[in-house]
């Protein structure tokens, strides 16, 4: 019986390289390739359209005194000096609060934490915090910093809110960098009788630092572009002075852009576009620093 089946299949077996249904399938495959390339092209095109349209709108308004002038009701005189300085204040303090705590939490989770339910809860919690909408952080900051701690609409309240917002990102990026440190390096240090903190501070952190820095610079750039939480915790829309302390009022670049782009006049739309160009330039500079750091460290340490 089985011999019969075998012999029959041998007879019917096609021993020439007959194409069968292959041409159709190949055609479909080629069409698919085209679809994929087109989709990717549209995504990239969207980026180009975004940048091009904003630059086109911004071009007439990109003048040097944009950076040094106060905002004004007259578009041709208006500048974003207070917003620029305010943004620097905010990201400076945000970094000051978020980095030590974020790196500390990352060290705890990677090097110290026992494997128990609390640690598991911590990890799930951080992952979920990363997905909380930024405007909700604004409500948190409003309740805790502005109202409860009575910090009002100050730089400090804004920066603390932003610090909580970027904390999950800082922790996740730092953990990745710390995890990339080879275990053999830790073993070597433990093997000569180092304590946990000696191993961490002398070997793990210095080795992981370029990666940590790269991650937190990117986190900072997120803080630079955020608007919604600062609207909630009270960044002012129209500010004609500079903050001189951390309890002062302030505005930030994205806030100023929001304010300008909501005005009906075309001139202010142009100003908003120019503000966006300034914001994007700052972000690009931060990213360039991160890339440079990554490249430099890749050259320095060989494993």
């Amino acid at each position: 019986m089985s011999a019969q089946v075998l012999s029959r299949s041998a007879e019917s077996r096609n021993e020439t390289l007959d194409a069968g249904n292959l041409p159709g399938r190949q055609r479909r495959s080629r069409v698919m390739t085209g679809v994929l390339i087109a989709a990717t092209g549209i995504a990239v095109l969207a980026l180009i359209a975004l940048l091009a349209s904003i630059f086109k709108d911004a071009l007439p308004w990109l003048r040097p005194d944009l950076l040094t002038n106060m905002p004004s009701r007259k578009a041709e005189k208006a500048g974003l000096y207070p917003a620029l300085i305010g943004s620097l204040w905010i990201i400076g303090f945000t970094a000051l609060f978020a980095f030590p705590v974020g790196i500390g939490a990352a060290i705890y989770l990677e090097e110290y934490a026992p494997r128990n339910r609390l640690t598991r809860l911590l990890e799930v919690n951080i992952a979920n915090l990363a997905g909380v909408p930024s405007v909700v952080y604004g409500l948190l900051g409003l309740g805790v910093f502005v109202t409860w701690l009575n910090l009002g609409r100050s730089v400090l309240a804004g920066a603390l809110t932003m610090a909580l917002l970027i904390l999950p990102v800082v922790i996740i990026a730092s953990r990745e960098a710390i995890r990339a440190v080879p275990p053999s390096l830790r073993e070597a240090a433990y093997g000569v009788g180092a304590t946990k903190w000696q191993v961490t501070s002398s070997h793990v952190l210095p080795t992981a630092m370029p990666g940590i820095l790269t991650g937190i610079i990117l986190a900072t750039s997120r803080a630079l572009g955020e608007t919604a939480p600062l609207i909630v915790v009270g960044a002012a829309a129209y500010v004609t002075f500079l903050p001189s302390g951390w309890l002062d009022k302030y505005t930030v670049l994205p806030m100023q852009i929001y304010e300008w782009s909501r005005r009906p006049q075309d001139e202010f739309q142009g100003l908003a576009a120019a503000g966006i160009v300034v914001l994007l330039a700052l972000l690009l500079a931060l990213n360039a620093v991160a890339i440079w750091l990554r490249a430099r460290s890749a050259r320095k340490v060989r494993w």
Partner: peptide
């Protein structure tokens, strides 16, 4: 930690610290 100071260890793959030769010994 005290035990490891009296009982040292050499590992399967060489794992010097990414530091100078002298610092490797001195640390």
């Amino acid at each position: 930690v005290m035990v490891r100071r009296r009982i040292g260890m050499v590992f399967q793959k060489p794992n010097p610290f990414p530091k100078s030769i002298a610092e490797n010994i001195l640390w």
